[in-house]
């Protein structure tokens, strides 16, 4: 099966400063891949490149088999409609209520209210949000609810790929656990393909089929969590706290 995401020898920079070099990994259909690494290692920058917001310095990024670098802005927009993104902190539009936030991708695709309304109901339900939250404004929601609304917005247009940027950051352990369980259920029932950036070891352990670990400017290792934990590399052991150290 063709991979949904493919990074081939990618080099990325941030404000002209090289961040990551020789990044090679793939995300296969139906797979959740965790992108992990210390703070400032370039994970979110990598995600920005995947969405097409930035261009890599070197190498190629393929999304649904298409090389992003050579696509016109219109083609990139069409490709982005096949992706659902859950940004760090939710990034809900504060002037729109929950319903309008979730409905936005479908509205942009040209669907009428008659089709949008049931799809928003479905997305809210999938994200575990009761429908009475639909008219509420983002400022009235708790952190966990903001994350769920952001997930609903990511799911509403039936994405073929879900990108999750630190979905459990800032959530207390109980809410974070509930979110991980929800994602696990969605993966089982919908067969979601996702690339998830996370520091949260529990989220990585419980959700991801494979983990890509970046740091020190390049890809340190990738594979199943169990295999990674067997490796002797001190950076891997430090990240997964195998030597009693805290991951940064």
């Amino acid at each position: 099966m063709d991979p949904i995401v493919s990074f081939e020898n990618v080099e990325v920079d941030y404000d002209g400063r090289p961040v990551l070099k020789d990044i090679c990994f793939e995300v296969q259909p139906g797979e959740i891949v965790g992108l992990a690494g210390p703070s400032g290692s370039g994970k979110t920058t990598l995600l920005s490149h995947l969405i097409g917001l930035k261009r890599p310095v070197r190498g190629s990024i393929r999304l649904f088999g298409e090389q992003l670098t050579f696509l016109s802005p219109a083609a990139q927009r069409r490709l982005r409609q096949r992706i659902g993104v859950l940004f760090q902190g939710g990034a809900l539009l504060s002037s729109l209520n929950v319903y309008e936030n979730v409905a936005l991708p479908l509205l942009e695709m040209g669907f009428s209210d008659a089709w949008i309304q049931p799809m928003v109901s479905l997305a809210l339900s999938l994200a575990g949000l009761p429908p009475e939250n639909a008219p509420r404004m983002p400022s009235e929601l708790s952190g966990g609810m903001v994350t769920r609304v952001a997930l609903a917005r990511g799911l509403v247009a039936e994405p073929e790929l879900l990108l999750l940027d630190e979905p459990t950051a800032g959530l207390d352990p109980i809410v974070a656990d509930a979110f991980i369980a929800l994602m696990g259920d969605l993966q089982k029932s919908l067969g979601i393909t996702a690339l998830m950036i996370s520091h949260d070891l529990r989220a990585l352990e419980r959700l991801c089929h494979r983990i890509v670990l970046v740091g020190d400017g390049h890809l340190i290792a990738q594979g199943q969590l169990h295999d990674l934990k067997q490796k002797a590399d001190s950076r891997i052991r430090s990240f997964f706290r195998l030597d009693g150290e805290r991951a940064s």
Partner: peptide, 17 residues
Amino acid sequence: ASLFARWERIPPCSPQK
């Protein structure tokens, strides 16, 4: 079948209070 079953369980929501 699971897609149709899911639609059976979806409660409607409204954008307005």
